[in-house]
Structure formats: C-alpha cells, structure tokens
C-alpha cells in the first residue's frame, strides 16, 4: 500500500478546485489561469512507485559509497602522519576504528529511510557494499596500527612470555 499522501501533495493536486479569485480583482497582466494550470498539471504527475524505489536505491548507493570517497584521503593522511606515537596520529588512528564501527552499528538506521517493501531486497547489496567499505576503512586502520608496531605479529612480541626452563642439573663450584 502506498503511503498516504502528504497534505501539501493533496493541496497541490487540488489546485484547480481552489476557489476562483474574486472577480473584482483582475488577474495580473500575463497571468493565465488556464495555461499555468495546464503546465503544472503535467509536472505534478506523481512518480510511479518503481520510480520512487529507483530513486531511493540510487540515493542509498550514494550513501553507501560515501566512505569509498574518504578512503584515499584516509590512506594519504595515515601515510603522512608517520608511525610515531603522537597524539595526532593516535587520534587519527582511533578515528579510523571508531567511525566505521559506529557506522557499522548503525547500518539499519542509515538505510531505513530508503527501505521499503520493494527496495528491501535491493538494499541488501547496497548495505553489503557499505559494510565492505567500512571494513576496508578498518583494514586501513589495522594496517596503520601494524605500521606503528602495535600488533603482536613478530616473535619479539611474545618474548616477554617466553622463559627458559629450569635446568635439570645444578652446579656448585669454587675455584679459589
């Protein structure tokens, strides 16, 4: 079922039924009631449901692909900020994680306005693309964190937990 039309749509549609202007006041020169009403009649033809859906999906795609636009910028910024532990690079790296995570937790909300009976299935792929791009942003973050040396990926990271076993034998000596 199509949603109820908003009041302004009804108003616009019932433009013709508007009470005629009082006859004692002349129309302004060049104003043609019939002509304008004819034109507007043609324009205000309500879009079909498919058209609305297409539009919604298109808009959804725009939202979904927005993170892709910021990806190169993020990469450049991360590259430029260096691997040292400074407040800015730490904050920027943290943003790389917090923003996508927040976005991921709000996927439903973000696309709810585009959601409809018809668009629901089509939005799925859009959402997937959106999620994929957010994950890509996180991957950049992980890459950055790794470059900063914060990931336990090397042998030295586990060195503190490695201990030489207690030797089996003991030795007692005095060489005086």
């Amino acid at each position: 079922m199509a949603p109820p039309q908003p009041a302004w749509v009804i108003d616009l549609k019932s433009l013709n039924s508007r009470p005629k202007a009082p006859s004692n006041v002349a129309d302004p020169p060049g104003y043609s009631t019939s002509g304008s009403s004819k034109k507007s009649q043609k324009q205000i033809t309500p879009p079909t449901q498919t058209e609305t859906d297409d539009l919604k999906v298109k808009k959804a795609w725009e939202v979904a692909l927005a993170p892709a636009k910021s990806l190169p910028m993020n990469m450049i910024m991360m590259y430029m900020s260096g691997n040292t532990l400074q407040i800015f690079s730490i904050m920027m790296t943290a943003m790389l994680f917090t923003n996508p995570l927040r976005a991921l937790s709000n996927v439903g909300n973000t696309f709810s306005k585009f959601d409809g009976e018809a668009t629901h299935s089509r939005l799925l792929i859009v959402k997937l693309a959106y999620i994929g791009l957010q994950i890509l942003t996180i991957v950049i973050g992980i890459w950055k964190v790794n470059a900063m040396g914060l990931l336990p990926t090397t042998r030295s990271d586990w060195l503190a937990w490695e201990h030489a076993p207690v030797p089996l034998e003991t030795s007692i000596s005095n060489f005086r």
Binding site: S156, L159, E162, E169, S171, S173
Partner: peptide, 21 residues
Amino acid sequence: SIGKVLGDRSVMYKYVNPHLA
C-alpha cells in the same frame, strides 16, 4: 629477557646457561 630484540622486531635468543665457567 632471554632474547634480544632486533630493529626488525625479530629476536636473537641468548645462550642461557647457569653453569658457565
């Protein structure tokens, strides 16, 4: 620490032996 961490974050393990003379 039983190892020495090198610049590339790899480890050179020390020769640990309590019985050295």
